[in-house]
Design a protein around this nucleic acid. Sequence first.
DNA 1: CAATAAAATGACAACGCTGTCAAATACTCT
DNA 2: AGAGTATTTGACAGCGTTGTCATTTTATTG
Lengths: 339, 339
Amino acid sequence: MRTNRVTIQTVAEKAKVSIKTVSRVINKEKAVRASTRDRVKAVIDELGYKPSPAARALAGHTSKIIGLIYDNPSAAYVLDVQTGVLKSCYSEGYNLLIHPCDHSSDKLAEELISLVQKSRLDGLILTSPICENEELLTKLIESKIKLVNIGALSKNAAVSSVSGNDADVVKQITLDLVEKGHSEIGFVFGHIDHDSAHLRFSGYKQALVEKNIPINQEYIVQGDFSFESGVECGKHLMNLEKMPTAIFASNDYMAAGVLKAARDRHLNIPTDLSIVGYDDAPVSRQIWPSLTTVRQPIQQMSEYAAGLLFKKIIDSTVNTEHQVFNSELIFRESVKQLD
Amino acid sequence: MRTNRVTIQTVAEKAKVSIKTVSRVINKEKAVRASTRDRVKAVIDELGYKPSPAARALAGHTSKIIGLIYDNPSAAYVLDVQTGVLKSCYSEGYNLLIHPCDHSSDKLAEELISLVQKSRLDGLILTSPICENEELLTKLIESKIKLVNIGALSKNAAVSSVSGNDADVVKQITLDLVEKGHSEIGFVFGHIDHDSAHLRFSGYKQALVEKNIPINQEYIVQGDFSFESGVECGKHLMNLEKMPTAIFASNDYMAAGVLKAARDRHLNIPTDLSIVGYDDAPVSRQIWPSLTTVRQPIQQMSEYAAGLLFKKIIDSTVNTEHQVFNSELIFRESVKQLD
DNA sequence: CAATAAAATGACAACGCTGTCAAATACTCT
DNA sequence: AGAGTATTTGACAGCGTTGTCATTTTATTG
């Protein structure tokens, strides 16, 4: 009944070494003579031997599985993160368990702890906005769960992170708007649970302050990163007595919403209104006019994040690291130079 | 050093039963007296015992992990599939390994077989267009890999599948176009590797035949499901001596591309040209005008597909099943009734 | 070249479950 | 009540690795 799997023992016999030596070769331990290693490797290849993850996990007390936790409205973002993390996983021999969730659930800590225990995960990668929840982080750390954040840095000393230079780049793009003659610049705020929403706002403020442009509270509208909220915020801004000449929306979905609102009022973009988005989501290219926006190297960031986690899994005393990745401004059709 | 994990033995001792009986309770075997089961369950809850997947896999010869294989340009589609499959996995106690790949790679069979062997996967869910590759399916089946398809039914007797009623629904939507007065209807073909591309075309043809409208080869243009190809195909159709009054694009990205092409020619949609898409991708709502399109119940389909796979894993003699899910027509702003 | 240190290898007991099969217990029917 | 049957339960041997520690082999040193 049982298929004749090639086990470590098969390899050991054929290579005329002990099981343990084969194990050493598999695990790249150095206490193996080069000639032995080569011989064993050859047999492994010849037999097509694949070590049993289950047996390794059982004996070695480490599952080589990590979890990726997310709750993000952008499919493209999530997929990019997955791709980046997977890349790292493949090269380091880890498996990935994805876990979408509800970041606002008050049972999230329980849920994640239970997930880790049930599936014996070696660590967790948390994405925004989950990793912004310090209380959650604390609970996870208390449960000895190894963590890395993508998108927000934590005050918690045990949590490494990768993040973008959101504030900087929004400042830059706002300055660009100002240089193009805009001084009435609307700002559509992202979902308040996301750090990035606040960082992007801070960049906007910095630019205006630097240019001595007063910050008009009327121009700042609260969205939630959804297209629909973009439409609403857009409407609101366009109904203002003095409508802004440009609107920065904190992501592309909302920017697309603003664009829709503009269409509904028969405004021409960018002639009557300039729009800037964030994220370089596919929609930013698929709508007309295409959106000036910002691209974060999500895949690269995620790959790096996974690497940080692996380091921490291997050596839990490794230093906490906060890596910042620079984003790229992408100028397209939705912004106009004012005369 | 080792943490004091709660093992099955801990539970057994506390419940005053043998390890095996606890095992029976965990596995919902019926040869356990109700009173015993309750007692054991109570102890399990009290201790927060979580069985070790590794030990179970090792002893039970089944990993309770399945793989999801995809290579699809639509992030929303992939994420929907993931969500649906995960739902099923959670309820049946399986874990999911995602595996993006290149469907056109000639080493794909090798790659997947190796994946299954390395991670000891119990089965694979294949999505379009991977599951359209019969040669691949044959190789996987030869390697005794349990398979379920999402999106295309296979001639291979061993492969169950779920799919949409693409031909039907495209026929319906084309008929609707005809009833609204259109008889020059362009068709943007999807990527030829996808069954659905062909099915959608067949629906289009059926509608025209039924309405005695000649099929004009000039109106049929080859795309590849990408936005860019939609732009090109749109341009082409609009350059025709007699431009169609309506265009069906085989997915929303291409429809958005057609829309872009129309804008570039200063055509008004839907006044000058009606456009229909497929998939109800987010972009279909985010562009202006919003697209008339078709929604497949992807999550539901995927959830069901996973269920089929689990059935086959438990009992490999189970009947092959081809489940068809009906799609929904979504009428929005991109189609105009001709006078 | 012996003495010693260092490197390479192996024996064997876990790891925490499930499968097999035997034993114990409970139920049914005269 | 006792034989016969069905249901519950348990003992024990794996499953295929890694960790620990002992042993053997090789290199180094005075």
